[in-house]
């Protein structure tokens, strides 16, 4: 199917098994699933916040590069994370 390689035109969508939200008490974004919670670090949360089934991977990269101008080229970080997220079944493509 997709051996972990994310293409720029993919439009990732959150797996309906998970709910994504900001948690004030944890001060981070989290993924909630039956009886469990994954706490996302800062960059992972920023990426997941843009996953909506409409934005392409390229859109997500551009948006975050504009938001974090000092960070340089984020392509590798973002596709790498989305590849992991796909392998973990957090997102579908």
């Amino acid at each position: 199917m997709n051996d972990g390689v994310i293409s720029q035109v993919d439009q990732p969508r959150l797996n309906p098994m998970f709910r994504f939200q900001w948690e004030k008490a944890q001060d981070c974004y989290v993924l909630l699933y039956p009886e469990g919670m994954i706490q996302l670090n800062g960059p992972a949360g920023e990426i997941m916040a843009l996953v909506d089934g409409k934005r392409s991977v390229a859109d997500i990269i551009i948006t975050l590069e504009q938001k974090f101008r000092d960070a340089g080229d984020l392509t590798e970080d973002i596709t790498g994370f989305l590849g992991d997220a796909y392998a973990q079944h957090w997102i579908t493509l």
């Binding site: 948690e23 008490a25 944890q26 989290v30 909630l32 009886e35 469990g36 919670m37």
Partner: peptide
């Protein structure tokens, strides 16, 4: 308010 997020 205490931080609970999962409710059973």
């Amino acid at each position: 308010e205490l931080g609970a997020v999962q409710l059973g």
